[in-house]
Design a protein around this nucleic acid. Structure first.
Lengths: 201, 201
DNA sequence: ACGTATTATTAGACCGGTCGTCTAGTGCAC
DNA sequence: GTGCACTAGACGACCGGTCTAATAATACGT
């Protein structure tokens, strides 16, 4: 392994530690000292990789968005019709015994409101990530309508964004209630809403 | 004016200043010094009224929830059928030239995710407030179904909570995009969803 | 192989800000 | 005059983000 790769690994360790901590404490609630203690990297190194805490935050969000979209793209490229892929996507929001769900690991859920007024670079990074995700959901809605696995919508783009808004909101309510109930309600309502043949809710 | 009233006014001024500041900077992003500078109250007084910053946060959220529910109750007690009242409620989320909308003045939107992991008293206060609001929305859905101004739902409680989740999520997306578009989409979709006679989306 | 220059990385000082506590002081009601 | 409510703000300990001098590692020329 070359030194360049080793350097990348150090930087990635800071990003990963930072993500885990901000998911618990928010962005302003976590200091650099904490992140560096968790990642085992000295402060001088931090400022070698990141110009500032804000630059670090922007990189952390970009890293998160890239990983998220890669997983969504893998889901889309996989087997199954569009309806089944959408079902799998919503399922991923709920926690399972083996892994946390998107709802508890999502940086849009945890940091969206906090950083929207704190940092334009961070806000724009999350906004672009949301746009990219919503575009993919809209494509799945169109594809599903064509092949009959999802009911057709007049405006799949708006519907996709409102579906994402609902799940985002349900995730916040789940955090406030310390309960999966809002996510399960979102799951049931979304299934009903997208069903090609069933009752609308 | 009695001293008791004057004392209440001082306490209220701290709460109001605090609210304005956390709406911009989040809870962890605002220090006591800033709140006290804005409210013109010395630190000794702060700790006379509030046992801690967390106790202050809990009181601020309780104060917000109380005011919010009072306005919702006034809306409910006013003229018009349930459908019209719901329309007015959703309209209040969007900003107008004369006032900010709920979306930009809502402490659930701004602080929900941040404080959910930070403070149980604050989390419970918001959670109870959300429950109280959702209960009222569900009542309006039931009343509207009865009088024919809202389409009937199989589960008005779940529908009310999911409607709130959608608007909460749309408000976060609006902050990230720095655009009203998500709120206007939520408005259009909600109108369609609740319409007693129109197409579902 | 060695010396030098350059680049990568680190240590931790610095200064401003944080929250909470404490105590002396002030104003007002009785 | 006394007691209570409220105030002023110093203080201490700790935390925050940033910066710079120093050190370590690497590349290159001889």
């Amino acid at each position: 392994m070359t030194d360049a790769k080793k350097s990348d690994q150090t930087r990635q360790r800071i990003l990963d530690s930072g993500r885990a901590l901000v998911l618990q404490h928010g962005f302003s609630g976590v200091g650099l000292a904490r992140i560096l203690a968790e990642s085992g990297v000295p402060k001088g190194s931090f400022y070698y990789y990141f110009a500032s805490k804000e630059a670090f935050g922007t990189a952390m969000l970009a890293d998160y968005v890239e990983g998220y979209l890669n997983r969504v793209d893998a889901l889309i490229a996989g087997p199954g019709d569009a309806g089944a892929k959408l079902e799998n996507f919503w399922d991923a929001w709920l926690s399972h015994s083996t892994a946390p769900g998107i709802a508890s690991a999502c940086l849009v859920v945890k940091l969206g409101s906090e950083i929207a007024d704190l940092s334009d670079p961070m806000r724009e990074t999350l906004d672009r990530g949301v746009d990219a995700l919503v575009t993919r959901l809209a494509s799945l809605l169109r594809e599903g309508a064509k092949e009959g696995s999802v009911r057709p919508f007049i405006d799949p783009d708006a519907t996709a964004r409102m579906l994402y808004a609902k799940w985002l909101g349900a995730a916040v309510l789940a955090k406030l209630a310390q309960s999966d109930a809002p996510l399960r309600m979102a799951r049931a309502e979304t299934t009903s809403q997208l069903s090609p043949t069933g009752d609308q809710f």
